[in-house]
Every structure is written in structure tokens, then in C-alpha cells.
Design a protein around this nucleic acid. Structure first.
Length: 423
RNA sequence: GGAGAGAUGGCUGAGCGGUUGAAGGCGCCGGUCUCGAAAACCGGUAUAUCCUUUUGGGUAUCGUGGGUUCGAAUCCCACUCUCUCCGCCA
């Protein structure tokens, strides 16, 4: 949610920032509803003030045993009716304003390169050489079938297309990756591990910015009105909803493993083979709640934390900055990490690290007091995958192929897998 | 799923329908005292929103949403959540 104050006082700043994202919004409507709302509040507050005075006075006279004229109360009854009707108008205006405001994306950071779509995303740096192989490489879906560790047909039998099943050492590899990543971020990077529900209430998923605009991409349980999380970012954002933190509580670093559920309606027909784009996958997610002044440097360190995982696994990767047209709805500034998958010969997005500034904090009402005397301020929140498991599995399977058809396990994982190759 | 109890400020805990934004206690902040500290004493200590914006003032908020009333923390209804017991269950 962007700040209504900013929109009121500096509409041009908002318009310019949004136009860099290629967004057109009916900001004039919001401003006129806002003006109407405020004028109603002024009128209503005066009426309420009047009513409070008269009622208090009636009470005082009653307690002194004086008579109170019935007609006086008749007059106040009509005042009460007027107040009720204004209350109602104001509430409706606020719902309208809130709904319009909640559909406006975050404003991009001034540093973010201006562009239309992913084709305008600059590559910031590349780490590691793309290895060359003197034998023919297989894509992961062939490897997985040949080694009997990924079972796509049976995954589909259970749940339909874009679901997969793992088996044997494939399952163990998945489990090892999750455990290792969690340990790495908690031990080496100072994150606190949290376990959170995978289904959340509507207000929680609104807070992270996935509703109202992106409900199509989510699974929803009608029976109990709960939403399956598309990422751990959603419940972690909600963890401190409606709280006012102390300055010494910041920064908070959280890491969580959860499954992620995505309907991927918009991606129909894309990436249909293998486990690159699926409806349910595991992910280790990093999350930061920070002092607003520090959020961009916190983004750099978040990105480094995610990169460390790629480095430790020995996977070549590159950092791509998302341009204004490609950053997500909630983000002010984002970097993607893409690892090289040697078998299908493409760069796979395994993490997006984002500074969401105060956008989610506003939606979820998450504030802090800079010091004991000052008023509460919104914190900044950041999130990034650390990392998405299936795509990392793809990269490991494809990049660590050996000439004899086996897969070598990266050194750091062996204590977790208990084996050093899959054959 | 059944039965019962409860929800008040950072915490604890009062609150006959009428100066109750809310007693008392604890905590926290500032001050007095002190060489310093503790103790004691004095003062302050919620959030949102609107108007003025230096100061200040109005309104709303006692789980949430409705209702009764000139006036609701207090009465009525619905819902949510927490706790206890029974049942079921990984």
C-alpha cells in the first residue's frame, strides 16, 4: 500500500514513479473520494462533539435531580440519525479508497533502471564459468527418469499436470537441500528459523500484497476461507501484523522452509516439461524486518546471503537487476539470481531478492518506535528465496552429470545426503 | 463435534448506563534528593484519524461487527479467539 499522505501532498511524485512501471491508475478518483471523506469527517465530528456535550449535560442535570425536557431528546435523536448516516457514508468511502489504493503497486526505488519488461533487465555480474563437457548432456527430466529419482507421470496421476513425485535418493537430495540451507542461513548468516502455517486467513495474504489483485494465482479453501501460501513470505509478513516493535528489536532476520502452492494460470503452456514450473514446490525463504534507513544495504546483504548458497554448491550464476517494468507489485527494488542449467541450457531463476520498503508494513500494520518518545513508523520488509528447491535440484542434476551417467553430489551436501553420487 | 469459562491500556487488575481514555498496582521515561546509586517523593507515560499545525483542539477505539439509548467498557444479538473438561484423531 502506498501512502495516502504522499498521494495527497505530492501526487506528481506518485504519477511519475508509477509511469516508470508502465502503470496507469485512477489517482484522481482516489483524491476526490479522499476529499469527500475528509469533509464528511469534519461535519460528523462536529455533530458528535455537540451530542457529547448535550448528553453529558443531561446526565449532570439528572444526577442533580433536575427535570430534562423530552423535546431536547427528540432533537438529539435526529442528530443521532444524521451521525449514523454520515458514519455509514464515511465507512463506504474508506472501503472504496482502500480498495483502489490496495491495487496500486509499490513505487520503484529511484536507482532502479527504467524499462518495459524482462528484456530490459541489466545483468549485474556473473559468478563462475559455464562449464564445458565432452559428452552429451541430458535435461533433468531424462536424468530423473533414467535414475528413477523423479517420477513425473505418477505425480500427474495423483494431482494432474505440473505435479511431480520424487523417489529414493531424489527425495533424500530434496530433504538434504532444505536442511542444509536452513542450517546455513541460521548458522552463518544469523537468521532465526521459523515454522509457520501453510494456510492463512485472507487478511494475512492481503498484507503481503497477493490479494486483491493476484487471487487467480492462489489456491483457496472455500470451506474455511483459508488460502494456501504461494511462499513463506506471506505468513512471515503476517507474523508481526498489528505490532509496534521497539527499535532494539530491529533488524529481524527470519528464515523458513515451506511448500509453496501456485496455480500458475498465467503461465499455461510455458515450461511444461520437468520440474521447473510446478504447482507445489519446496522453498527456503529469507525475510528481513528493518529500519527504513537501512533497507537498501540490507537488500545487498540479503542478495549476498542467497548467492552464498549458489557458491557453496558450485553452481555458475548471474545477478540480474529487475527494471521498473519487471519488479513485482510489492517491490521497490529487486535482483534475480539465475543459475545455469547445463542440460536444458538456460538460466533458471532461483531467487528474487526484494526490498518492499514500507509497502507490506502498511498493509499489515507493522511499525516500530525509533525511540521511546517518537510516534510509531512503518518498518521496511525484504524477502528473498534462499533458495527454490526444484530449480536447484535441476541445476545440480544437470551440471553435475558425469560421463558414466551418474550425478556427483556437491561436497557441502554430502554430510546431509549421506551419499556422494546418484547412479 | 459436545459442555463450560473468559476477552479492559506494555503487563496486572477495578469498573451502579451519565466529566471513565478508563481507578489501583507493576513496568517505563523525566525530575527532586544523593559524591554516586538504591529507596522515597513529584510529574509524565496508548493508537488512529480530522482541523490548526508553534502551541493546541475535536472525534473514534475496553476481542470484532451490529442493535437499544439523548448518552454504552457497562444492556441485547451475532461472530471470532483463548482456556478447561468430554469425544475423535496424526
Amino acid at each position: 500500500m502506498i501512502s495516502i499522505d504522499l498521494l495527497r501532498n505530492n501526487p506528481q511524485i506518485v504519477i511519475d514513479a508509477l509511469s516508470k512501471r508502465g502503470e496507469e491508475n485512477n489517482l484522481e478518483d482516489i483524491l476526490s473520494y479522499d476529499e469527500k471523506r475528509r469533509s464528511h469527517i469534519i461535519e460528523n465530528d462536529e455533530l458528535k462533539h455537540h451530542r457529547n456535550e448535550v448528553s453529558k449535560n443531561i446526565g449532570q442535570r439528572r444526577s442533580r435531580g433536575e427535570d430534562v425536557d423530552e423535546s431536547e431528546m427528540e432533537v438529539m435523536k435526529t442528530v443521532g440519525e444524521k451521525i449514523a448516516s454520515l458514519d455509514n457514508d464515511i465507512k463506504e468511502l474508506e472501503i472504496t479508497i482502500n480498495d483502489l489504493l490496495s491495487r496500486i503497486p509499490n513505487l520503484p526505488d529511484p536507482d532502479v533502471p527504467v524499462g518495459q519488461d524482462e528484456n530490459d533487465n541489466p545483468i549485474i555480474r556473473q559468478q563462475g564459468e559455464i562449464p564445458s563437457y565432452d559428452f552429451e548432456l541430458q535435461p533433468h527430466w531424462d536424468i530423473g527418469e533414467r535414475l528413477d529419482i523423479i517420477d513425473l507421470p505418477r505425480g500427474a496421476k495423483l494431482s494432474g499436470s505440473r505435479f511431480y513425485s520424487l523417489k529414493g535418493l531424489g527425495s533424500k537430495l530434496e530433504r538434504a537441500l532444505i536442511a542444509w540451507m536452513l542450517d546455513y542461513h541460521t548458522d552463518k548468516h544469523g537468521y532465526t528459523e521459523v515454522s509457520v502455517p501453510y494456510m492463512v486467513r485472507q487478511d494475512i495474504i492481503f498484507g503481503s500484497g497477493n490479494l486483491p489483485k493476484f487471487g487467480d494465482n492462489l489456491y483457496h479453501d472455500n470451506e474455511d476461507d483459508l488460502w494456501l501460501i504461494p511462499t513463506a513470505e506471506v505468513p512471515i509478513t503476517g507474523l508481526h501484523k498489528d505490532e509496534i516493535l521497539e527499535a532494539i528489536d530491529l533488524p529481524k532476520y527470519y528464515v523458513a522452509h515451506t511448500p509453496c502452492f501456485r496455480r500458475e494460470q498465467a503461465a499455461a503452456g510455458r515450461d511444461t516439461r520437468g520440474i521447473k514450473r510446478v504447482h507445489q514446490f519446496h522453498k527456503v525463504e529469507m525475510y528481513k524486518i528493518v529500519d527504513p534507513a537501512t533497507s537498501n544495504s540490507e537488500l545487498d546483504s540479503l542478495l549476498n546471503d542467497a548467492e552464498d548458497i549458489c557458491k557453496e554448491l558450485g553452481l555458475p550464476y548471474r545477478i540480474v537487476q529487475l527494471c521498473t517494468g519487471d519488479i513485482s507489485f510489492v517491490s521497490a527494488k529487486s535482483f534475480d539470481i539465475e543459475v545455469w542449467a547445463a542440460g536444458c541450457e538456460e538460466w533458471l531463476e532461483v531467487s528474487t531478492c526484494s526490498n518492499c520498503t514500507d509497502f507490506q508494513a502498511r498493509r499489515t500494520s507493522l511499525r516500530y518506535k525509533p525511540d521511546a518518545k517518537s510516534r510509531p513508523q512503518f518498518v521496511h520488509t525484504l524477502n528473498g528465496s534462499g533458495l527454490a528447491i526444484p530449480r536447484i535440484m535441476i541445476a545440480i542434476l544437470e551440471n553435475y552429470q558425469q560421463e558414466n551417467g551418474s550425478i556427483k553430489i556437491p561436497e557441502v551436501l554430502i554430510p546431509y545426503t549421506g551419499f556422494d553420487s546418484i547412479s
